[in-house]
């Protein structure tokens, strides 16, 4: 760095003012101009978050929202060079600082997460699937999964109920958000725990339905298995209909 200590300090004080509004005395500056920077920078952050989290904005009071924006801008060192990805850092910041508890809105973190994944899935880089067959055996063949998805766990079902109402239905909810390959639409699927287990093993471990059933069978009562198999068969069919499952992987033999 070839800045003098004095110039470096000037830049630090200037940016500190922009982020916090704490009074500073910078020589040879125009106070009215200085104010514009804080206004413009804060507006950028505020507008980005308002656009990303319309539901959260609507359920928080103006004062609560302003607190989040001010605290985030002053206290969080933004890491992404892409401002449209900043809402993820905002979600993380709000969760870590437990604002949901402070505001007596314990669902706040889940709500921000829910709103963020829609953006995340909508914008995520294209994930080209491996070549796959359209026909196959849904039980025995390995399934090619649409890779443009996020699977998150929520304690408050903000995807099913209004935010305040979600407080009355706490539990373990698994939400799959994926991008439909035909029209790029982001769609949400609420997955029961059993389906989440199957989905993860198929999508992340590349296992066939038969292999997963075998694993489950070894740990479950035999009399439960027919019902589980029937249930999973229907689940797999639905996942194909929704284009979360795309087809069947080719098996290459040496």
């Amino acid at each position: 760095m070839l800045y003098s200590k004095e110039t470096y300090k000037l830049q630090q004080e200037f940016t500190r003012w922009c982020r916090t509004g704490e009074e500073i005395h910078l020589e040879n500056t125009r106070p009215e101009g200085l104010k514009q920077y804080r206004r413009l920078l804060r507006n950028n952050i505020n507008n980005t978050m308002k656009q990303a989290f319309p539901i959260a904005v609507s359920i928080l009071s103006e004062k609560e929202w302003a607190t989040l924006i001010d605290d985030f801008f002053a206290g969080h060192d933004a890491q992404t060079f892409q401002v449209w990805k900043l809402p993820f850092e905002f979600y993380q910041f709000v969760s870590k600082q437990s604002y949901g508890i402070t505001f007596k809105k314990p669902y706040l973190s889940d709500l921000l997460h829910f709103e963020w994944i829609e953006i995340d899935v909508h914008t995520m880089p294209d994930q080209i699937p491996e070549p796959f067959k359209k026909k196959g055996d849904p039980k025995k063949d390995r399934i090619e999964v649409n890779k443009e998805y996020r699977l998150i766990k929520l304690n408050f079902p903000v995807h099913l109920y209004a935010a305040e109402e979600s407080k009355n239905h706490t539990g373990n909810y698994f939400l799959l958000a994926y991008r439909h390959p035909d029209n790029f639409e982001v769609r949400f699927v609420d997955l029961p725990a059993l389906h989440t287990l199957f989905f993860e093993k198929i999508a992340q471990e590349g296992k066939s339905v038969q292999e997963i059933l075998k694993e489950i069978g070894e740990a479950s009562s035999p009399e439960l298995m027919p019902e589980i198999e029937k249930n999973i068969s229907k689940f797999v069919e639905t996942m194909f209909d929704q284009k979360i499952f795309l087809g069947y992987q080719h098996i290459y033999k040496n």
Partner: peptide
Amino acid sequence: TFAKMDNAHLYDLLPIPFREDAVKHVVQ
């Protein structure tokens, strides 16, 4: 301009002080 300071992106364009040491720094 500069848009990052103390390891934080600011997402707007801030004026660099018009100074000789700033010229040297920016040129480098």
